[in-house]
Design a protein around this nucleic acid. Structure first.
Lengths: 167, 167
DNA sequence: CAAAATTATTTCAAGTATAAAATATTCAGG
DNA sequence: CCTGAATATTTTATACTTGAAATAATTTTG
């Protein structure tokens, strides 16, 4: 058969075959595997079509909607990654000429990053194609299911964000 | 304030502030950020409490329910990671004495890994504590919401798994 | 205002992750 | 039984990721 000439995990998944266990545990595993499947598809698609990584795409997506740029700290919060991570990520995008990095005139500790002209136009193409893909992945999901998930995930997200400081 | 003495991303998250955009796109971002928040909490909790990484925990979780062990290929499929990734992950756990790795008598290409006695007993403690944490993260989520998410995520997962071979 | 605390970022070490190429072994035909 | 296809895993190169420690600049305060 040969699946794709690549090593490729991320296609089968038995959802950890969580037999017993509490409903919440099983839900968490299902949530995770669903997110993994979708992000895997997106990652492979971006790579195949544009040779760009998902983290780079995410970074550009954040900057695309902030024409004036963002400080690194704000960017790391929005992307939910550590500061240290961003240093290298931004560096690579600067090398490629997609992102500009300049010191904040108001605070010499800080840096502001934003899309270059080239970055902006490339990202537009990436985003368009990506939207097409994501919509296709949701093809068999009814609008009311989308709505229900939207609301229920908000509840879960709020609960998980709140109930954090345990022990 | 100081948040936690660590560099810590993964706490705030503006859900990418996806203003416009199709509902499906926004749902995908919400799904991703929810999964990120939960897995971040789990990861930090396991590290703080037991000094174990999430991938190691996941690997042990898979083996825990297969007393006879698993071949590496099957394990990589279940964990949704590439084969190459597993080589190093297993190696570390073998070094720590938590996992045993032996060649499959029926197929000399293959390896079978399973939990050692020590691994089994350590994992029991990890899992117990982890279950406590996950349940606490779901604390404010009503059972019917859990049920609804379970069903609707199954639909989404199926759709995303199916609609793959696009272009 | 100078020392102390805080904030913004980088550096570092270790681990995780992918995709592609390389190895080794098994299997299917001829 | 020998060859070529298929399978199982490892290796390699590159990139991502974290958490902690280090740097540097700003703000707070005694």
């Amino acid at each position: 058969m040969s699946e794709s000439a690549t090593d490729g995990a991320g296609s089968v998944d038995l959802e950890a075959v969580a037999r017993g266990g509490k409903a919440e545990l099983r839900l968490w595993l299902r949530l995770l595997s669903t997110a993994n499947i979708i992000s895997g598809r997106i990652r492979r698609h971006l790579r195949a079509k544009f040779d760009i990584t998902l983290p780079s795409f995410d970074l550009m997506a954040q900057l695309d909607r902030e024409p004036k740029g963002l400080r690194l700290g704000e960017l790391s919060r929005r992307m939910m990654v550590t500061n240290g991570n961003l240093t290298g990520l931004v560096e690579r995008l600067v090398q490629e000429g997609l992102v500009m990095r300049e010191t904040d005139p108001d605070d010499r500790r800080a840096f502001i990053v934003r899309l270059s002209k080239a970055g902006k136009s490339k990202f537009a193409a990436y985003a368009k194609e990506n939207e097409r893909l994501v919509l296709s992945l949701f093809d068999d999901v009814e609008p009311e299911v989308v709505r229900a998930l939207m609301g229920n995930l908000a509840l879960l997200k709020a609960s998980a964000s709140r109930n954090a400081a345990e022990r």
